[in-house]
Design a protein around this nucleic acid. Sequence first.
DNA 1: GATGAATGAGTGTTCATTCAT
DNA 2: TATGAATGAACACTCATTCAT
Lengths: 196, 196, 196, 196
Amino acid sequence: MKRNKPKYKQIIDAAVIVIAENGYHQAQVSKIAKQAGVADGTIYLYFKNKEDILISLFQEKMGLFVEKIEEVIAGKQKAAEKLLVMVENHFKILSEDHHLAIVTQLELRQSNKDLRLKINDVLKGYLSLMDSILQEGIDNGEFHSLNIRLARQMIFGTIDETVTTWVMNEQKYDLVKQAPAVHQLLLNGFSGQNAD
Amino acid sequence: MKRNKPKYKQIIDAAVIVIAENGYHQAQVSKIAKQAGVADGTIYLYFKNKEDILISLFQEKMGLFVEKIEEVIAGKQKAAEKLLVMVENHFKILSEDHHLAIVTQLELRQSNKDLRLKINDVLKGYLSLMDSILQEGIDNGEFHSLNIRLARQMIFGTIDETVTTWVMNEQKYDLVKQAPAVHQLLLNGFSGQNAD
Amino acid sequence: MKRNKPKYKQIIDAAVIVIAENGYHQAQVSKIAKQAGVADGTIYLYFKNKEDILISLFQEKMGLFVEKIEEVIAGKQKAAEKLLVMVENHFKILSEDHHLAIVTQLELRQSNKDLRLKINDVLKGYLSLMDSILQEGIDNGEFHSLNIRLARQMIFGTIDETVTTWVMNEQKYDLVKQAPAVHQLLLNGFSGQNAD
Amino acid sequence: MKRNKPKYKQIIDAAVIVIAENGYHQAQVSKIAKQAGVADGTIYLYFKNKEDILISLFQEKMGLFVEKIEEVIAGKQKAAEKLLVMVENHFKILSEDHHLAIVTQLELRQSNKDLRLKINDVLKGYLSLMDSILQEGIDNGEFHSLNIRLARQMIFGTIDETVTTWVMNEQKYDLVKQAPAVHQLLLNGFSGQNAD
DNA sequence: GATGAATGAGTGTTCATTCAT
DNA sequence: TATGAATGAACACTCATTCAT
């Protein structure tokens, strides 16, 4: 399994750095190879093509994302609490890896439609997690009856827009400190008046 | 004034169609010229370069956006009503121009960081409109005391994510019909428990 | 006759200025038209094409050259004296019109082979003048028997190289003051030991 | 060191042929690549850009020039003899490579001012060689006291004009046979009456 | 005569991918 | 496995010239 060989991760980490520092369109394969300390051709022993590096990058990093968030959620009882730690950890993970934040919020969005559709597939695991929190909240009466897709779009849209604004402002303020306010805004939406 | 000459709009409309149908990276200047029914060189009598076409496209279309929404807002008294017609019309305008929806939600986001920063400048007018509705709502007691930037990020993030999901689902369902539910979700966030 | 209309000379003078100030490859027809105060299309009422402007420019200016030099030569008896005033006036005319010096020594040489062959045709009148001075000097015993073509190449080559070096040094020193020394060097060549 | 790899010289030789046969402005990179038997992109593994090919071409060829002439000069005692073998060999090298003669005398002069300034830098080594012959001749009494810059301009201007005329006449006559007469003309200038 | 908007042919350079070693 | 030299397709932009007014 190539995914477990050291060069696999080495190349992905190199890609994150190169894309963050040079931008998506200046992240040539040869630059990534150089950063990873391998020859250009070696890249193709581990990845089908350049697009495959980017998808794999997203899968690896988003996998950690979902894993981490599932872990912290497990310790919480209420849907509202789960939502809070989700927002907090989403902000925390990206706060702790500035390169990754730039890559996911700004650079990777420059990829073409096809690539982004594939990235969306990867995102689905995360979105499902949101859906299940919402469903749980509805079932146990914390949230009123919601259109789950809409509510999830509000969660993801709000979180994503908040992070992007923070990255575009060159990460000048503390993103994690915004989590409670964002959480409260979302929560109001779900526990307030019925939206159907 | 070049902006008022017929060929200026003709080229912009051609660009929307070509980008929507071929994708951002397959929208060559020569293709746009052909679609517009002019020679390649004519493009450069009206636009400084290819990037200038895209910025102008966004300015023109977003200008109509803000104009239209200011118009419908003027007829409403309450901030909540203004928010509703804003969401409704945002959805309506993009529903009525499928090409434009594809271009703004998917294709134009593939542009490089410089171009996107310029596009963000254009967006600012629209975001300000949101800010003033929020401020008004706070002032007249409809909304509780809000962090306006966060609240605006929630509005824009939610709307944008909703439209993008709709476009990615190939516009299969009726976007405008989602407006009331989206509006209600947002409203709950603003008029519910204090987020500060 | 177009050559006598004011706009004809107006365009040629504009061309000299534009080429001197912008360089041969940055001297677009539209720039020349603007400098001349006419519309682009008007150029084509007076000149067949762009090349025709340059040839005409050279003809007009070189015509004045030959005319002026024939005039000053007429007042001299000896071939050696004629050679001196030729060198002096060649240097003087170019010293007095810096734009023209730049154009003839540097910029016009960037034209393609065809244009330069035509320019050489124009030069022939000047070279013939040199030939006749040389022939006269041989006939009256001032110069020894010379290969006239070679001798003329030495005259023209030396003068031309001297002016070009001066232009490339940004015309910092007094070119006309060099005339006697150049003249003496050439004269030695012709009146010294037989070269055949 | 790229300069020692076979493809480096292969591309330069191809450039000489393509420029000589098609003219400076018709010497596209793709044409040079084809002539050299490599892909277009390969050119850019050996040269920074098109201009770099031309400068390198001049450096390589002019390097051989200076090398060869320094070699034959070394065997001569007197400055006059050195001048003769310099003229002879200058003529000989260009006589033996008609393509190179066309390129240096006609085509490369169409390059823009920047490129020509760089070419002039390369020429300086050759001009210095002339200066040292002149200085030597003055020091040992063969030549009278000369303005060295002027004298060198006469040498180079005469040689260059002679070769250019020969190339423009399609190399119909024997250039090398002209060397003694050219040499004699120059020599007279230096050993004749004092020019200061 | 004079205008200037419109035309459209032409090219240097990059970079993902391959493959002989 | 690993290398890195070689490949070659693809495209924005300029500007001399025309011609309807």
